[in-house]
Design a binder for these strands. Structure first.
Lengths: 234, 234
DNA sequence: GCGGATCCTGACGGAATCTTGAGGCGACCA
DNA sequence: TGGTCGCCTCAAGATTCCGTCAGGATCCGC
């Protein structure tokens, strides 16, 4: 059976641009869907589950980056940002927000296609923990799209930092998340020297999520290495 | 606790460029090693196992791309290509050869750092396809991706040192691992003088993994030479 | 300005881990 | 028989790592 061609979501407000991109992508053997605004982009991204997203910044209904920031915690779909603005600030902001690549217009179609191949190559290997949108196990449920966490059906309030840490753990559910990866993901590159943050916030997460915080079942310690969230059961 | 900062290999023939890059990377909290030629780049990449490689094309002793093509099948380390040439051809060729990103000089350090963060982020992500290292035999199962070890289906907790030693043995499963190779792999170069460490930790591994620790079946002693883990059955 | 929530930071006790030493056992050899 | 050597076992510090608590700083809405 033929494997379905990768589906690429094009988010751009200018119809001509969309059709040029779509034509080039079709010629290269991809399927495409298009969205003219942030709102449609978001709903299509969640609804159609594309394999890759091409995002033009500068959309009419809001900052294009917000698509990245809202989408990235929920799904791992590679996002390539296209922009007319080539300032470093914008690039760094987009990349740090979770974008996987950034092309400044004008760019050649060949380069775009090559970078799409790179992004798809990256996305191909993983998908180990399913990375389904949601996590559920041991009575705890995490919904990254709604940014909602519940335990035994009751909503749990988490502070921003707690939630970020939980997401980083959920994303690696079943595997060991090293101190370093957690620290850099939650507090940024420079935090690698402060493993103490982790202890404090792990304790808070356990207090909120575990039945018996001193005998954790969900959030396990791997001494000298990091922490491990139990396997996703959903 | 000091968590090792990511190690970045800089391959560039011009010493001033290398030192500028190294300075910027140090300032950002990374460790670096440098290589002026392809040959050294290759040997450092394989010897030091950096977390990321910055590769300048146009090296004196051959086409820079050959580093990508020879390295990529062997290791998954992200490679960012730096080049003065901005032609699409070169970009496409590099990216398709296995490079993960391509920056055209001149570029800003901020952008480089942001793209390094992207690449390291990718590298942190789980990889499932590459289970080649997984080991299973005699009821014992080792899963390096999850950093999990089980015996007869039950999870076994290993300390960092025990796990490191087990991995070193698994990597040589079926063959003899000499005392010296195990010692240097687990405790570093300077440990060759303390063969006693090995005995202690081999005993602990046997206690945790063998049915009858005093009559080992999995972890065999090769008197005078080293130890041997039985052949992988998976 | 005020109250509340959140985050950072230091101090401390206890747990897990690593290191080191002492002693036992069996193989081998003179 | 006695000695040496390599390997195994056990266990007691020493050290590192982790969980907990709480005070103070910061931010934000009102």
């Amino acid at each position: 059976m033929a494997i379905a061609a990768p589906l690429i979501l094009i988010v751009d407000d200018e119809a001509p641009v969309r059709s040029v991109l779509a034509a080039a992508l079709h010629a290269a053997g991809y399927r495409t869907i298009e969205a003219p605004t942030l709102r449609f982009g978001l709903s299509h991204a969640l609804g159609h589950r594309p394999d890759l997203i091409l995002l033009d910044l500068g959309l009419p209904d809001g900052p294009g980056l917000s698509l990245v920031t809202t989408l990235r915690p929920a799904i791992r779909t590679p996002i390539i940002v296209l922009s007319a603005r080539g300032e470093d600030r914008a690039k760094v902001a987009a990349l740090d927000a979770g974008a996987d690549d950034y092309l400044t217009k004008p760019f050649s179609i060949e380069e775009l296609l090559a970078r799409i191949r790179v992004a798809l190559r990256h996305a191909d290997a993983p998908i180990c923990g399913e990375n389904g949108l949601a996590f559920a196990a041991g009575g705890v449920h995490v919904d990254p799209v709604r940014r909602a966490v519940s335990r035994d059906g009751e909503a749990i309030h988490l502070t921003p930092t707690e939630y970020k840490l939980l997401l980083a753990l959920v994303r690696q559910a079943g595997r060991v998340a090293t101190h370093r990866s957690l620290l850099t993901e939650v507090w940024g590159q420079s935090a690698a020297a402060h493993p103490h943050y982790l202890r404090v916030y792990m304790a808070q997460l356990r207090n909120k999520l575990e039945d018996d915080p001193s005998n954790p079942v969900l959030l396990l310690t791997e001494p000298g290495v990091g922490y491990r969230m139990i396997e996703n059961a959903s």
